[in-house]
């Protein structure tokens, strides 16, 4: 509380020294974990990004949808692209477009972008989450590990209809 004596040269006591060393070692461990996982881990944050205008992205997605559409669900086209190809997902108020049908155990290059405001890609119940920005094409190399019906919800506030923005992602065996 009050003005202390000048005690800057006073050495640390034993418990303080021990704790400082333990804490420092723990911090170094935390620091090492991220690069270690980056090299060895199989789940890493995608970094591949391209700039794209909303107009360009819409055209790409429309062409992609026209080429591989197999079905329609609740008015949204269902698209089954070839295994291992580039697949596209478009976020807009308040819809994910189109619905993707993927194969289990196959890697895809998943492109995500928005044509209006910011959105949040949240794959449930896998619970994988990525930010979606207009003007940026974010490429995630993903491999579904289990077949089933998954949900995509928006988890970035995107104006009043935000809670209606949900869709499906289908993974087949």
């Amino acid at each position: 509380m009050f003005v202390p004596e000048r005690v800057w040269w006073k050495p640390l006591s034993r418990p303080e020294k021990s704790w400082l060393i333990i804490a420092l070692v723990w911090c170094l461990f935390l620091t090492a974990m991220m690069p270690l996982w980056f090299v060895l881990g199989r789940q890493n944050v995608p970094a591949e990004t391209y700039t794209v205008t909303p107009q360009q992205y819409r055209e790409i997605v429309d062409a992609f949808t026209a080429q591989y559409q197999v079905d329609t669900l609740n008015g949204v086209p269902v698209v089954e692209p070839p295994a291992g190809s580039d697949v596209y997902l478009l976020a807009r108020q308040w819809q994910w477009y189109p619905i993707l049908k993927l194969k289990k155990g196959t890697p895809y290059r998943l492109h995500i972008s928005s044509t209006d405001v910011q959105h949040g890609f949240s794959l449930q119940p896998v619970n994988l989450n990525l930010q979606v920005l207009p003007g940026y094409d974010y490429v995630a190399k993903i491999t579904p590990t289990q077949a089933g019906d998954y949900s995509i919800v928006c988890n970035e506030f995107c104006a009043i209809g935000h809670h209606l923005m949900a869709s499906k992602l289908i993974v087949t065996d």
């Binding site: 949040g120 949240s122 619970n127 990525l130 988890n155």
Partner: peptide
């Protein structure tokens, strides 16, 4: 705040 783990937590 761990880079990779954030994928499980972002905006939840």
């Amino acid at each position: 705040g761990t880079e990779q783990i954030n994928m499980l937590a972002h905006n939840t």
